[in-house]
Each structure stands twice: as C-alpha cells, then as structure tokens.
C-alpha cells in the first residue's frame, strides 16, 4: 500500500507512452545480461532491461523469441522444467530472484501470473478466487468473502458471477475465465502481474475488455504483458520491448517502436514481415 501512495498518479498513459520518467520513479524489475537455458538450448541471451514501478510494460515478439521464457523466469515457474539454468542477474526491488534464501512460494505470491490458456481450477468460482488466500492461511469465511468480492470487482467480473459463485468455474466463457484468472491473482494482492498472451484465445470484445482492464490495474500494480501480436502492442500503447530469437532487439515507447524503429528487424516485424 505504501508503494501505491508514493507513486500515485504515475501509471498513466502519458508517462508510459512518452517514456518520460515521472519524478521519484523507481526500478521494480531489472535484468542484467540475463540468459536462460533449457539444457543446451539458449532461449534467452544477454537480456538487459528495466521496468519501473506501476509501469505497463509490453513484450512483443514472434513464437520462440524468448518472451514467455523471460516472464516465467520472473516468478521462477520456468524452473519446473528439469535441466534449466540461467546466467546474469534478474532482480525485483533490487533482490536477485535466484538468490539464496528466496522463498519461491512467497515470490510467486508477490509476482502473480495469468496464463495464455485460461484454466479453471476444478472447483467453484468462489474457491478459484479464494484458493490463493486460503493457501496463505486466510480461513475466516467473512474475510474470504470480502477478498473474493473485491478481486472479482477489480477484474470487472463481479456483476456477471455474483449470483452463481458456487457454480463450477469451468462453466464460464473464455473471456470470463480469463478475467477470473486475473481476479485469482488480484486476490493475493501481488506487486507485479505477469500476463502471458492473455487474450490469444479470446474474441475481439473480450480482448478489448482485458486491455482496458490493464490500464486500470496499472494504477496499483506493475504489469508485464507478453504478446505475439504487434497490433495489440500498438493498441495498448505502453513502453514496449521487442524480442527476437532470444534477444532483446530494442525498447521504447510503442509510438517510437512503431513509427521510427531503430532496428531493421523491428521495422520488419511491426510491418508484418514475420511473426
């Protein structure tokens, strides 16, 4: 909460768009020469970038560009696959994510993640949202109800599901399910929200709703969005990074990336030559 006070009114479209650091801005995430390997295969090579607090940061790139690998490195979900390793440093609030003594469960609570394919845990809508807090030891029914309602309201899903919270969550539509995934993350009051192509399976209207939602959420959270779709990056219009074949090609405001890319490969991508 203190963070929110300190940076209130910063995550606006203006700041993100023009890339002008607002006064007192702090670095939330920083990667320095970060590389990630699956066995011998190098999926991410020497990536260095900084993401500010309460920034909406978009990573775009074609399949296999390493953007999801970067996202999964941030909450150490990539380590579930055996035989992976990393080089360089990746820090959140100045603390190395891979440092000794990092509590992985606590890290994942602070760094929430929304997956490409919306997944309903095999339980009720209520329990899906309450799952995270319950695992943190919140048991009191009244308290859980409040957390669930607030999370669903913040994810703009409350009005659609408030009368059927005990229904199995798999009955929701794809777009609702993805907002449920977001509510599930919000219920844990994370600091960072990672979204891995959250709209890839959704219709245009659901997609727009989620994109609008992101601009509301960034008032309170740092958001990293991964997309393979340059049009989406342009629509969201935030600070954008372009990844290609495991390398960070360039970063800049969406406006700069789309109108005057510094690198030929970026220009090819945004003009639809590959992807």
């Amino acid at each position: 909460m203190t963070e929110t006070e300190a940076v209130s009114g910063r995550g606006t479209r203006e700041d993100n768009n023009r890339g002008i650091p607002a006064s007192g801005s702090t670095t939330k995430i920083s990667a320095r020469n970060f590389s990630f390997f699956y066995g011998e295969h190098c999926a991410l090579r020497d990536v260095s970038l900084e993401i500010r607090r309460n920034q909406l940061f978009t990573i775009m790139g074609p399949s296999g560009s390493g953007k999801t690998t970067f996202l999964r490195a941030l909450n150490r979900l990539g380590n579930l696959i055996p035989n992976t390793r990393h080089e360089g440093s990746l820090k959140i609030d100045g603390v190395d994510v891979y440092g000794k003594g990092v509590d992985v469960a606590e890290l994942r609570r602070r760094v929430g993640m929304v997956f490409a394919l919306p997944v309903a845990l095999p339980m009720s809508i209520f329990s899906n949202v309450a799952h995270g807090p319950r695992m943190q030891g919140v048991r009191h029914p009244k308290e859980l109800e409040e957390i669930v309602e607030k999370a669903l309201r913040d994810a703009i899903l409350w009005d659609e599901v408030k009368d059927r919270l005990s229904d199995n969550a798999s009955r929701l539509s794809g777009g609702q399910l993805q907002r449920l995934s977001i509510a599930r993350v919000l219920a844990l009051e994370p600091e960072i929200i990672l979204l891995d192509e959250p709209t890839s399976g959704l219709d245009p209207i659901s997609t727009l709703r989620i994109e609008e939602l992101l601009w509301e959420l960034v008032e309170r959270y740092t958001i990293v969005l991964v997309t393979h779709n340059p049009l989406q990056a342009a629509r969201i219009d935030s600070k954008t990074a372009f990844f290609l074949m495991g390398e960070l090609i360039e970063t800049g405001s969406a406006y700069d990336i789309f109108t005057r890319p510094k690198d030929k490969r970026t220009e090819d991508y945004v003009s639809g030559k590959y992807g």
């Binding site: 979900l77 997956f115 319950r134 695992m135 943190q136 844990l188």
Partner: peptide
C-alpha cells in the same frame, strides 16, 4: 495446467497436491 496455476498463486507443492 492445474499444477502451474496453483503454484503460480504462491502455493507450495504439498498445498497444490492436497488442494
């Protein structure tokens, strides 16, 4: 996917198994 979602929500492995 169930396991990933549960782990990504800050559950431990054992919590994921039981819940």
């Amino acid at each position: 996917a169930y396991r990933e979602v549960s782990l990504a929500l800050g559950s431990t492995r054992w919590q994921t198994v039981t819940s």
